[in-house]
């Protein structure tokens, strides 16, 4: 038997009015070592837009009823022994993440701005260079690009800290430069009861930066904070 998985949930013994899951399958609650797992029985399927929406709807439904959840990324199909083995090996990490996310929701900020302070070109590329030099120059360019992105992330984080103060319990920032613009995304972990404060502070902050374009969305289940990175990331290269 294979299980399509939606999320882990803390202290959940039943689910009121769960929506249908992927492929219209019923959603079941399993308890493994005291941890609730929401899943549907499946034999595999070709995903459609309705399946993505069904996954999101199930996760959102559980999010409203449980103290804390760890949403799965779309498409996780596991055998029951594989799932039991994972929970048994990562039980403490799952519980620690439940505690970190308890009572919180994720808010997202997308920003688009004109690219400024781009890293200067390192070399005149019109000059012919050998393959070794080219390799080192590419590495150097890559390194400087990483440095530049890290600097932009730090600037944004400082700005958010100034504007939001203690409201953000956790934060992840990604910066994607292209030729002329910067697209940045910030994910904030916010206590559910303080989301109106967050919205008010973000609205004020946005007014201070008319040169950027913003979109704030949420509250979302904490998808961006669900990975157990230390125990899993290095094994499978998950970001």
């Amino acid at each position: 038997m294979k299980l399509y998985t939606y999320c882990f949930a803390e202290s959940l013994n039943g689910l009121n009015n769960p929506p249908r899951g992927v492929s219209g399958a019923p959603v079941r609650l399993l308890k493994i070592d005291g941890i609730a797992v929401l899943a549907s029985i499946t034999n595999g399927f070709r995903p459609t837009q309705n399946d993505f929406i069904a996954h999101a709807a199930v996760v959102r439904s559980v999010f409203k009823q449980a103290k804390s959840i760890l949403p799965f990324r779309f498409g996780q199909i596991l055998t029951e022994p594989h799932l039991r083995n994972y929970v048994s090996r990562h039980r403490q990490a799952i519980k620690a993440n439940f505690a970190h996310l308890r009572g919180c929701a994720e808010m997202n900020v997308r920003m688009i701005g004109t690219r400024e302070n781009a890293p200067p070109p390192i070399v005149n590329t019109d000059k012919p260079v050998g393959p070794g030099t080219r390799f080192l120059l590419d590495k150097r360019r890559e390194f400087r690009g990483d440095e530049w992105q890290a600097a932009r992330r730090a600037e944004l984080s400082e700005w958010f800290t100034e504007k939001l103060g203690q409201l953000k319990r956790d934060e992840k920032i990604n910066v994607i430069p292209s030729d002329r613009i910067i697209i940045a995304r910030a994910d904030h972990l916010i206590e559910r009861g303080r989301i109106p404060d967050y919205r008010a502070k973000m609205a004020g902050a946005i007014e201070e930066r008319p040169e950027w374009r913003f979109m704030v969305s949420g509250p979302w289940p904490p998808y961006s904070f669900a990975n157990i990175e230390l125990e899993f990331g290095s094994q499978f290269g998950v970001s």
Binding site: P47, A56, F74, Q76, Y86, Y223
Partner: peptide, 17 residues
């Protein structure tokens, strides 16, 4: 959210499905 984020247990199974 559902495609790019969230807990990943078995990336290789995701692709095969």
């Amino acid at each position: 959210h559902v495609l790019n984020r969230g807990l990943v247990i078995a990336g290789e199974i995701t692709i095969s499905v």
